[in-house]
Design a protein around this nucleic acid. Structure first.
Lengths: 321, 321
DNA sequence: GTGAAAGCGCTAACAA
DNA sequence: TTGTTAGCGCTTTCAC
């Protein structure tokens, strides 16, 4: 339609070769008239970018995750990327599935996803960003790490309770139906442990509430601790949801919050604002984190070697402390 | 490696032509050994399925949406589909972006997404499933509709309040920074209006709390209604988040819940369980809905003409009613 | 029953 | 400065 070869069209659209002004204009005019769009698939096959980013995660449905994805989408769309969401599966078939897609980059935020598979993904040559909620001791720095502030954040939680005179803390681990409980590689749990140690607070297995497969079990587990004679004057939840369950258990056991027991959550999700008493929590800088993920991946895709990043959390104090 | 032509490999992998048993086995052995995976991109370019489903939504970050996506992923993965998430944008560029991707199917759940663009997507030949939270009066039945029970669900909310002797209701619309408030095409709002009419309950503009751009405004708006002399003994929130804001406003104004005013939410999200008093809500059958979305799309992609589907909601009564 | 070859829509080396 | 052409990895027609 523009009376030029395909080559010229390609040059104009990619803007990577000089093309005579008049031809360039004719091409652009034809593009408009025909609503022409280069076929992303053909482009990818030819070895160009697919403009496709994959987010592998183990908890697609929580609020924190949803907000991160929402923020990522805003930035990604402007850069031309499409984001796909995929729950992790621990097998080679999964890695193989992913590899057959030719995605440009992968973000991983999956506590239970085996490092072996992470390494396979990296080895296939795709840029990988690790959204750090746990350690990856065996993964080298071919993968860029983004620390969202979990470690320092949870330490700050402990310090806050300490400053309120609390010394007998309980840590509330996640609920999981599939046995995915926190191990020492979990950044929140390890941060909690180190801070307890640094602050010289007593920490033993019975202060680590874990292994629950549903809310009811967790509720009962917290009550059991409180009624066992164990001294408890503070509770740190790994996230707001867990803290809320613990909070309701505390109240049900007849303890006052925050007079008898202080409770603090993590994530600053909507729920923290609406429970009674309102839950103190730690806010993550999600917009900045989301932006860093996309920007970092974008740089890696362009062949750069961006460095790891760390973000700070912000204490949102409410009534439970 | 198997000593056969590419053709035979293709036949074996797609299982669509007879291939001699020994060759078939050699191919399969080579596939295993080489960890061979057909390149999805090349396959798509050749005109086959991309096994890629796009979910266009206007509220990626809420809990309801996250759970739907999580359930969709489970089923989609088993069928070989990858799901991408994309916030809607109201312009042709957006449609064009989507079209250049050659996705197999599109799910749309976006209250403010212009029907014009939905039609453009349909016209481009991609199967489209509409996750109904509003009407699409101008879209024909080339798009398959999945009703999640919003209309009947919200009617049941009104009926429940009515059965509790409540007749002076307030409807709490969404909060939006971009002016995306409910219009008559919104299934919850229209369902509420029709039920109010059927039940002969008074409904006027002042009972429709809308136009708020943040929680504080909504809180104030509810208080203003309560203090204006308007008689109010029941509140219906379009979702749990809105109901919670209203609930806190009600309590702040010194009214008792449920003695003076009953409150009901929608979605049965976690928050409804943890506010005080615990919020009565309406649960959607998310696993079934998610399954229906993928199955329907899968059928359409295979060339079938599945029919619209409707799901039921379930009342979860707690303390606010 | 199997292979050769064309072609999906694009990019880029090379030639002109 | 632009056009011809090969080729990305696959599927499928057609011929044998």
């Amino acid at each position: 339609m523009a009376g030029v070869s395909e080559t010229v069209v390609s040059y104009v659209l990619n803007n990577n070769r000089y093309v005579a002004q008049d031809k360039r204009e004719r091409v652009l005019a034809a593009v408009r008239e025909l609503h022409y769009r280069p076929n992303t698939v053909a482009r990818t096959l030819k070895g160009k970018k697919s403009n496709h980013i994959l987010f592998i995660a183990d908890n697609i449905s929580n609020e924190h995750f949803g907000k991160i994805v929402e923020e990522m989408d805003k930035i990604a769309y402007d850069k031309g990327y499409l984001i796909s969401l995929l729950a992790d599966r621990n097998d080679e078939e999964f890695v193989s599935q992913v590899n057959s897609r030719l995605v440009d980059g992968i973000v991983i935020s999956a506590t239970g996803f085996d490092e072996k598979y992470v390494q396979m993904l990296i080895d296939s040559g795709v840029p990988v960003v690790l959204l750090m909620n746990r350690e990856y001791p065996n993964i080298g720095n071919e993968a860029v790490r983004i620390y969202t502030g979990l470690n320092k954040g949870i330490r700050d939680c402990v310090k806050l309770l300490e400053s309120r005179g609390r010394r007998h803390l309980l840590y509330i681990d996640r609920i999981s139906r599939h046995g995915r409980f926190s191990k020492k590689d979990d950044l929140r749990f390890s941060g909690f442990c180190s801070q307890m140690e640094e602050s010289g607070l007593p920490f033993s297995a019975e202060r680590f509430v874990t292994g629950c497969t549903n809310e009811r079990e967790l509720f009962d587990a917290v009550c059991a601790r409180l009624n066992s004679g164990l001294e408890v004057d503070g509770i740190v939840g790994r996230n707001d949801d867990m803290a809320c369950v613990a909070l309701s258990a505390v109240l049900a056991c007849g303890r006052r919050v925050p007079e008898d027991i202080s409770v603090i959550g993590f994530d600053n999700s909507r729920i923290s604002n609406y429970v009674t008493p309102a839950l103190t929590s730690m806010e993550l800088d999600r917009p900045a984190i989301a932006k860093a993920i996309i920007t970092t991946l974008d740089e890696m895709i362009a062949g750069g070697k961006p460095s790891n990043q760390t973000f700070d959390t912000k204490l949102i104090e409410r009534q439970t402390t």
